[in-house]
Write a protein that binds this DNA or RNA. Structure first.
Length: 714
DNA sequence: CTGGACAAGCTTTTT
DNA sequence: GCTTGTCCAG
């Protein structure tokens, strides 16, 4: 938080904090003190209006934001802030379901949560059973279809899913049956089943409606339909719904977030008051002006005009790198300059990118130049095989019905139970209509398998039963240790230093969890882990450069921000240009720029390794949407004018390929009509160079003049 | 049944 | 370039 705002709220902010009640929409621009409004509002309600903390529900978008909010409120409030309901939609719904879900037929409170990897596995199993080949229908696609149905609150039998592929619907139906059998909920279920509960058990809904006298929602622009309904249902009695958001920062459309929720708020709630926060306390005038001009290109938005009294500050730097390696070197050397000559600490600096894979080269370069960094998200800790294995053991222990987890560990470490045995067990379980685990027991009792298999299965069965009977009074740490030793998992990792370290990390997590909770149960621990993400462990204390995706960057701020990969097909991402989601990509870039307090560095490359192949790239259209005078162009024309490089490169390539590109670029001449994948149809105005590196200047009616690498044109 | 060798497919973004 | 899946010899 910027110091000039530390103690005093401005008029609009005060108006929001002291809002008398009823629906309120706070349209808060980037850096206008959004989160602060919510914390101040909560403490105002508690301190000045004597509202009990347990009657307040505050929903945020990430666990990190929730934790931060809890801490800030705790500092402002005398009373027990612990009773506040602060969390993400998912964690809030989880909390409700853990108390109430048994009131719904077919659900029990000791359910476990399936993450998306578990979800995909289960979908694959279902597809095999339904004889639907993965070639015809990708499980991932099916998964996103199911998610999107759940985000709309639609079950597999819903008539509103008529336009869905029939096969997807059959998979969805079976998938639901299997989820119930495994006593598991997927991420979408946490919200979807909560709505079902509220609809089928009005008395449960009423309890919560009465309890939550005040509901506050942060990042309202990112709510999807189910989330919208949850909030709407819960606020019906007291109608004190206080939402804060910025439509310009809506970046989760792909997850079902509906920007209409914020655009139509005043239509949805009668007597809505709207307050706009347009003063930015974060960024320099330069950064803000660039961001404002950029977002002006979007049609679908509330009118806002962000302004600041901060200094003008430095120009925005744009560096056009030769290739992705050069880009990484540039970032790393600029970090060196900023820290050594300009007094910035490593923790003042962040590097944002569109896709997680982009981080690798940067990491390598930072390692080489010994710049300390931390990476948020990416190949997440919780996705590592050894972590998933241990968690699978724990899930089976707390919930033996969990088929996906049981199948994961049935032969880990290798104990001679292979595919054939598993398939037979599958058959047995399905024939007798019992969960997979009971199928094992049945096979043992009735000797339904060859004795060699039965011996191995019995060993495993006894091992698991012993672990399941592990007395509750023992803590989770010793349970994990027990799993590690008795299953032989630790022996298996004898030579795998890094994996053992990760195992150590999960032990630390369990120990910490044990300390935090009064009576920590295994099930709670697993819930906690399922909803946790790397983002939560992000700590501002360590003096390290932060690396993360543009999506994870939302809600954060840094004095110096680097955004890399400023190229067409990366931002806007390839998939978004075709689906007409360019506005959302623009908002994403907007989010990135507005994280910066003082300096913005943009970088893009003319060549980049994708799929293990060098690919030509052209600058992102968003670069040309920034006011030219605010930008310091570094190296911009370098790649276009450097002729030696072009000949050098083509000489290292196989002759046949060079010849082909020669012929291709030789096709182009001034006045010719060409088609580009992103810019559409255009007219050639100038041709420079030849071969692979030929540059063609093309006029596109919608985008103006562009210099393009010949091989990029159709 | 295991493990190694090879092929295929793949990349948005996250709770 | 990396990860996951498949095939085959042992």
């Amino acid at each position: 938080m910027v110091s000039n705002q530390k103690n005093n709220l401005n008029d609009s902010q005060q108006e929001a904090v002291k809002h008398p009640g009823g629906p309120l929409l706070v349209l808060a621009g980037a850096g206008s003190g959004k989160t602060r409004i919510i914390t101040e509002r909560i403490s105002y309600l508690i301190n000045k209006h004597n509202v009990s903390p347990s009657n307040i529900l505050a929903v945020t978008f990430t666990n990190k934001a929730a934790n931060e909010m809890k801490q800030r409120v705790a500092r402002l409030v005398q009373k027990e802030a612990r009773n506040l309901w602060i969390g993400t939609f998912h964690s809030t719904c989880l909390r409700i379901l853990k108390r109430e879900i048994n009131k719904l037929d077919g659900y029990s409170r000791d359910f476990i949560i399936y993450d998306d990897a578990d979800q995909i596995k289960l979908i694959k199993d279902c597809m095999v059973r339904l004889n639907i080949g993965e070639r015809l229908l990708s499980p991932k696609h099916v998964g996103s279809q199911i998610d999107s149905a759940k985000n709309k609150g639609l079950g597999p039998d819903s008539s509103e899913l008529n336009d869905y592929d029939k096969r997807v619907l059959r998979i969805y139906s079976l998938y639901e049956v299997e989820l119930r059998k495994s006593n598991a909920l997927d991420f979408g279920d946490l919200l979807h089943v909560t709505i079902m509960l509220f609809e089928k058990k009005p008395e449960v809904l009423q309890n919560y409606q009465n309890q939550f006298q005040h509901i506050l929602v942060d990042e309202y622009q990112d709510t999807n339909h189910v989330q919208y309904r949850i909030v709407e249902l819960l606020s019906r009695i007291h109608k004190n719904i206080f939402v804060v958001g910025d439509d310009n920062q809506s970046i989760y459309g792909w997850r079902g977030a509906d920007i209409k929720n914020i655009l139509n708020f005043e239509k949805d709630y009668s007597n809505t008051q709207i307050i706009k926060l347009e003063r930015n306390y974060r960024s320099t005038k330069t950064i803000l002006e660039a961001a404002n001009k950029l977002i002006l290109q979007n049609k679908n938005r509330h009118d806002k005009n962000l302004w600041t009294e901060n200094a003008t500050g430095d120009q925005i730097n744009y560096y056009e790198a030769r290739d992705d390696k050069d880009e990484a070197k540039h970032v790393s050397s600029q970090i060196g300059i900023e820290t050594k000559n300009r007094g910035y600490s490593y923790k003042d600096i962040a590097i944002f990118f569109r896709t997680n894979t982009q981080s690798r080269l940067i990491e390598e370069e930072l390692l080489r130049s010994t710049v300390p960094y931390k990476i948020v998200g990416g190949t997440e800790f919780y996705k590592r095989a050894e972590i998933k294995d241990i968690l699978a053991f724990l899930k089976v222990i707390t919930n033996p019905s969990d088929e996906i987890s049981l199948k994961r560990i049935i032969n880990v470490p290798p104990r001679g139970i292979g595919k054939i045995t598993v398939n037979k067990l599958d058959e047995i379980a399905r024939e007798k209509d019992v969960p997979f685990f009971d199928g094992i027991q049945l096979a043992l009792e009735e000797k339904l398998l060859p004795s060699s298999a039965l011996v191995k299965l019995e060993k495993l069965f006894n091992l698991l039963t012993r672990l399941i009977e592990f007395p509750e009074k023992n803590d989770i740490v010793s349970l994990i240790n027990d799993v590690l030793h008795k299953t032989g998992y630790l022996d298996m990792l004898e030579k795998e230093e890094e994996r053992r370290e990760n195992i150590g990390e999960i032990l630390n997590l369990a120990a910490e969890f044990g300390k935090e909770r009064d009576k920590p149960t295994l099930n709670d621990f697993l819930d906690n882990v399922s909803l946790a993400s790397d983002l939560d462990n992000f700590s501002e204390d360590a003096d390290k450069v932060t690396l993360m995706t543009l999506h994870s960057a939302k809600g954060l701020e840094f004095p110096v921000v680097f955004i890399i990969g400023m190229e067409e097909n990366l931002i806007p991402h390839f998939n978004s240009t075709r689906n007409g989601q360019v506005e959302e990509e623009r908002r994403l870039f907007y989010v990135g720029i507005t994280r910066a307090k003082e300096k913005v560095y943009l970088a893009g490359a003319t060549r980049r390794m994708t799929f293990g192949k060098q690919q030509a790239c052209i600058p992102s259209r968003f670069i040309s949407e920034l006011p030219k005078e605010l930008i310091k162009w570094e190296n911009f024309d370098y790649s276009l004018m450097d002729k030696t490089r072009g000949s050098k490169r083509s000489s290292t390539k196989p002759i046949s390929r060079t010849r082909i590109t020669y012929e291709k670029s030789g096709r182009y001449r001034v006045g010719q009509k060409v088609v580009h994948s992103s810019f559409g149809e255009g007219l050639i105005k100038k041709v420079e160079g030849s071969g692979d590196e030929a540059k063609v200047t093309v006029f596109f009616p919608a985008y103006g003049f562009k210099k393009i690498i010949a091989s990029y044109l159709e």
